[in-house]
């Protein structure tokens, strides 16, 4: 591994490092669809602080793969490279239903203050404005997994054609695909859910955890150069402000070199805006 040339890092790399750090050594981890950034984070955790983790490579269900690159489609067989054994997909779902899945990564087209995720539709069931692809396994696994990490590369407020600001982080989602820390009326214990739900959020601006009293997202760290005001401007609800908001702990040069080795095709960068990717952060 060469760390030459790693005198800076970019937002995708910082996010991958933040996401990797939500994995504990020995965790069981699964991730499925449309997930180049989580794949990067998981492989990074494996090669750094969490070598004893157990990871099934998405819908291919290969155990602990070591792919030479990350593919543009998460069902590609490169994710079986050095995986052994190759299981049946249902074995992973069975494990999740038994309560033995420690962590999974979910994103959302809309994400609300409690971490409820919408990947199903914008609008209402009777009047669907945008049909989104769907939640894959996130609706049910979100009920079963011990915890999940929420990630979003669209922590922003786009201006719509009607001049309205459209947030990814919203007061309430149009459709709950995956249940977060609570619904508007009941928390997970009251709902009777087995898993603990989301416990951390990694975005292109900052990281959140959740306020233990209200279950609302609590701003925890700011990425270099980001202000609290910028986070608030780009968030459609009022997050709880932690007493000790600090700068996001920077990655190490080794972590950045590893990320570039894990993902030489830069699949992880897909979906980020050009301007976001052009910003270089010094160590």
């Amino acid at each position: 591994m060469s760390i030459k040339g790693t005198d800076y890092y970019t937002i995708d790399e910082l996010m991958a490092v933040c996401m990797a750090r939500t994995i504990k050594n020995g965790d069981t981890i699964f991730n499925g669809v449309a997930v180049p950034l989580p794949f990067t984070a998981i492989m990074l955790a494996f090669k750094t602080h969490a070598p004893e983790s157990i990871f099934w490579s998405g819908l291919l269900a290969g155990l602990n793969p070591d792919p030479p690159f990350l593919p543009p489609t998460s069902g590609d067989s490169v994710m079986l490279h050095r995986a052994n054994p190759i299981l049946h997909l249902h074995q992973i779902f069975d494990l999740a239903m038994r309560g033995e899945l420690d962590r999974i990564f979910f994103s959302g087209a809309q994400i609300d203050k409690y971490g409820n995720l919408n990947n199903t539709l914008i609008g209402t069931l009777d009047n669907i404005k945008i049909k989104l692809p769907g939640g894959a396994g996130s609706s049910h696994i979100g009920c079963f997994a011990k915890n999940y990490t929420i990630w979003s590369i669209r922590h922003d407020a786009k201006v719509s054609s009607k001049g309205q600001r459209v947030f990814t982080f919203v007061e309430s989602v149009d459709f709950v695909t995956t249940v977060g820390r609570r619904t508007s009326t009941r928390n997970r214990d009251e709902l009777g859910l087995m898993g603990g739900g989301p416990d951390c959020v990694v975005t292109n601006l900052c990281t959140f955890d959740f306020d233990p009293l209200t279950d609302v997202m609590r701003l925890k760290t700011l990425h270099p150069g980001v202000t609290v005001e910028e986070v608030l401007e780009n968030t459609g609800f009022e997050p709880v402000l932690s007493d000790t908001i600090v700068e996001t702990p920077p990655p190490t040069k080794e972590e950045i070199a590893l990320i570039r080795e894990i993902d030489p095709m830069n699949t992880r960068k897909v979906g980020f805006s050009r301007s976001a990717l052009e910003k270089r952060y010094d160590f």
Binding site: H90, F93, G137, F144, V179, T183, L191, G192
Partner: peptide, 28 residues
């Protein structure tokens, strides 16, 4: 959901009218 598909097809494989599963709730 992927897990629901598994359970519904599995019920058919098992020749059963339904499959029970750990509680899923709170999702639309």
């Amino acid at each position: 959901d992927c897990v629901a598909v598994l359970m519904q097809l599995r019920a058919s494989v098992y020749g059963l009218p339904f499959m029970p599963m750990k509680l899923v709730t709170g999702t639309n």
